[in-house]
Write a protein that binds this DNA or RNA. Structure first.
Length: 200
DNA sequence: TGACCGATGAAT
DNA sequence: TTCATCGGTCAT
């Protein structure tokens, strides 16, 4: 996917990413999956977003990469043990991102099972931490260009509106009213989602 | 320098 | 529903 794909708001990018294919190339091999669940984090005005009310790129701050151009990876560590993979969206100065929450495994399934240590398929990439483990995504990929070779996103089958659904986001209750925004996008009938919580 | 806590996952 | 686990963040 070209750079221009990422140069609009996180909400639009989150919706557009449904059905696209996240590909990860590493020395151990290639692993990929169809994106079936995303969440938009809409910058300075979104109380759930890591860049909420953040003015300028504070040097050394984990959100720095969000202030640059879209189409790069924002990877961070959560709960001291899991990585989360985000796609930076929008133009420089508009710090927005899309969290990739679940994939339908496609290529490299044996490699993903090995990395995760589980035999199944439905539970292989059904959560933000799980898919990072399955694809071998660590903070080494912080700031990685998604138009490069290590990790990138391919156009997939378009997902029509009748197959998509938006819901409130998962585990952002601390953000008050923002926790109610319909910024989570899922492929309605996918069997590979992280959870069915809040699904209408 | 230190206290607090989380865009989770797995077990119970 | 509980808890493991620890780096990032921000207040001193």
């Amino acid at each position: 996917m070209g750079r221009e794909f990422y140069m609009e708001g996180a909400v639009a990018v989150a919706r557009k990413l449904l059905g696209a294919v996240l590909v990860r190339n590493s020395p151990q091999g290639t692993a990929s999956g169809v994106i079936v669940e995303t969440e938009a984090y809409a910058g300075r005005d979104d109380a759930a977003c890591h860049s909420y009310k953040r003015d300028a790129p504070a040097s050394g701050h984990r959100t720095n990469v969000m202030f640059g151009p879209g189409g790069v990876a924002y990877v961070y560590l959560i709960y001291g043990m899991h990585c989360c993979f985000n796609v930076v969206a929008n133009l420089p100065g508009l710090p927005e991102a899309v969290l990739i929450r679940a994939l339908e495994p496609k290529d490299g399934i044996a490699l993903m099972r090995e990395r995760r240590g589980v035999p199944g398929l439905k539970n292989l990439c059904s959560g933000p931490g799980k898919l990072c483990a399955a694809l071998g995504i660590t903070r080494d990929l912080y700031g990685a260009d998604l138009c490069g070779g290590e990790i990138y996103i391919e156009r997939g089958e378009p997902v029509p509106d009748e197959s998509a659904l938006s819901t409130r986001r998962i585990n952002v209750d601390y953000s008050g009213e923002a926790s109610l925004y319909p910024y989570r996008f899922v492929i309605k009938d996918s069997g590979f989602l992280s959870t069915r919580r809040y699904v209408a």
